[in-house]
Design a protein around this nucleic acid. Sequence first.
DNA 1: CAAGCGTGGTC
DNA 2: TGACCAAGCTT
Length: 347
Amino acid sequence: MTDRATQLLDWYDRERRDLPWRMEPGQNADPYKVWMSEIMLQQTTVASVKSYYKAFLEKWPTVQDLAGAELDEVLHLWQGLGYYARARNLHKCAVEVTRQYNGRFPEDEKRLLDLPGIGPYTAAAIASIAFGNKATPVDGNVERVVSRLFKVEEKLPKAKKKLAELAQTLTPQTRAGDFAQAMMDLGATICTPKKAACGLCPWMKECEARLKADPTDYPRKEAKKPKPTRTGYVFWLTRKDGAVLMRRRPEKGLLGGMMEFPSSDWQEKALSRQEAQRKAPAPALWSELEGTVRHTFTHFHLELKVLKGRISGNPPTTGVWVLPENLQDYALPTLMKKVVKKIFENR
DNA sequence: CAAGCGTGGTC
DNA sequence: TGACCAAGCTT
């Protein structure tokens, strides 16, 4: 075992955080729980994940339970966590593990990689954390820690391969799972993007970036493209009994499979209200609510104006009529919750 | 392989 | 207050 790995594992044994999906030392990890937490933690903070993790484990304690659920139930419980393709793949993966592997996750990275929603990081995380195999999951934390430890000048994302190779050289033959979690804990609590707590770092004395530069200047990154702003109109259409019209978004793409209120296209070139109303789900006397619903996605900003109307004539054939008090029964993305909030503010 | 894909917290 | 960032995957 390298000196560095020993230093980090010693630190981890002292400072290890107690997380819901983390087993006590010496206990066997449950691959289902490791998998569930790793999927949820993709691009998502520990603080956000905790309550979702508990809710999912309580509702579906085993992978077979999850495989038996309806996709809509899964999307519903996932609402607000974002990146909804994860929820769709989570369900698909549970079905595959149940059918192809008799409910037991495969142990090796290669077969884990074949499962939906499991990429190089997650395959290595499950292999090491759940099964104790020597594997090196490389996430944003590991990239940051390694880029500082070795003061890597090459910029991300180009540097990914080099950083992964350096991380592998650090991984010890035994306790690879603990080592992986230690690396991520270090990145999450000490070797943070801004204001790193170097004084508390087990690698303080050998960190090249600390010795020769400012660690927070690493990893180097390519400049990001600016986010455009798209705009559109969203329609809050009610009928006599107060029910509002909703529809399900297509399976693929943005907010796939989630429920929404009908809207015009969202585009960078602003639509006039006149043009937008032609895209309404039904003819109605529309009144525009004051203000704007703002939301930022990964690659664009969105500003929606809300048009409120009451059905006159024949109702649209597509869509679902939902009483506002029953909105909680449906999988609403945060954007659509903001629309609901705007409506209730204006009543 | 670059782009698409959410959301909430932080500074 | 707006940009940055978080235990990435898919196409």
